[in-house]
């Protein structure tokens, strides 16, 4: 009991001696590359923005893809006048062409300590983030990695992979708090959030914040096998990975059932919140390999190239 504070109203003790050590695990880059081969990120059929690229954008541009015809208005570029139509109809008709952009993809990775309760969970989350980046690149998109943990980090381009490999999921702040320290999320992009979403904050406001101004949002929930089905036993001194709070529990069948019930309710709340902000909710368990996940739970994210 030394070094611990008094229990709060729910019997939880503050661990003044610091948070428990995490078990971060490196991602399997080869597995990521195998899973990304021949696949590209599936972009939603909604307007999106980005730098000039190969993907049709919501904006009118100068690509070769015909989007529509309309009557000429003063000020229109005369180069877009369809002279064949003028000859047929005798009216000034201009071709409206769709702009082609390189779509913006933001991968928000939860780097709080709860993502590293097991090496498997930490590795799978990083592999997943890297996989989305690879899919984005295969699809001609421009991926940006945002690490929500510690001081927050935003990486784009070639430095993304080294940054992801070096990232440590040791943030002592919950995901919602770490998110506030990140640089502002950019609008009109595809946003993929990789987290366990095991935060005590109400899911509604946090989901709205994660999906705000995004062309589309995908919430990928990565849970450890012990998160989903914790082992029982005589008792355990449960320590929160992030806050270091301690709670001693007799892990009998009743306690385990109550936990599963609360977890199911929590996930259901997040699913509802995701649905309200038009985000896709993809739950998965880290015990499966990335290849298995890519073929099952994450198949919606990728499409063949």
């Amino acid at each position: 009991m030394t070094g611990e504070g008094p229990p709060d109203v729910t019997g939880v003790r503050r661990a003044d001696g610091g948070a428990p050590p995490t078990r971060d695990g490196p991602p399997d880059v080869a597995a990521v590359e195998r899973a990304a081969a021949g696949r590209a990120l599936r972009f939603p059929r909604v307007p999106h923005r980005g730098r000039l690229g190969a993907v049709r954008a919501a904006s009118v541009g100068s690509s070769m893809e015909l989007h529509d015809f309309r009557a000429y208005h003063p000020g229109d570029d005369l180069r877009h006048v369809d002279w064949n139509a003028v000859a047929r109809t005798g009216e000034l008709v201009v071709r409206v062409r769709q702009d082609e952009v390189s779509p913006r993809v933001e991968v928000v990775l939860d780097a709080s300590a709860s993502m590293a309760v097991s090496a498997e969970k930490a590795a799978r989350a990083k592999e997943l983030a890297l996989w989305v980046c690879e899919l984005s690149r295969n699809a001609g998109g421009e991926a940006t990695l945002l690490l929500a943990g510690g001081e927050g980090l935003r990486v784009t381009g070639p430095g993304m992979r080294p940054a992801l490999l070096a990232a440590k999921a040791d943030g002592r702040a919950p995901f919602d708090v770490a998110l506030a320290r990140l640089p502002p999320l950019r609008p009109c992009g595809v946003r993929v959030v990789v987290s366990d979403f095991l935060v005590e904050a109400p899911p509604g406001p946090l989901a709205e914040r994660l999906a705000r101004d995004a062309a589309s949002a995908v919430f990928v929930q990565v849970l450890d096998a012990d998160d989903v089905d914790p082992p029982g036993g005589a008792g355990a001194r449960l320590t929160d990975a992030e806050t270091g709070e301690v709670l001693e529990r007799l892990l009998d069948a009743g306690a385990l059932a109550a936990y599963r019930e609360r977890l199911a309710a929590h996930v259901a709340a997040w699913q509802g919140a995701a649905r309200r902000v038009s985000a896709r909710w993809l739950p998965l368990v880290a015990s499966a390999t990335l290849d298995e996940l890519a073929r099952r739970e994450l198949s919606w994210l990728a499409e063949g190239t």
């Binding site: 229990p7 709060d8 729910t10 019997g11 939880v12 366990d196 005590e200 355990a236 449960l238 320590t239």
Partner: peptide
């Protein structure tokens, strides 16, 4: 008995049992 084997969990709040007596104050819970 209080010295249970340690276990790190992702979300401690999911393990807390909502106890109506706890809402009455910490002394009662203690």
């Amino acid at each position: 008995r209080r010295k249970q084997p340690p276990r790190v969990v992702s979300a401690l709040f999911l393990w807390r049992s909502p106890d109506p007596r706890a809402e009455a104050g910490p002394k009662l819970e203690r």
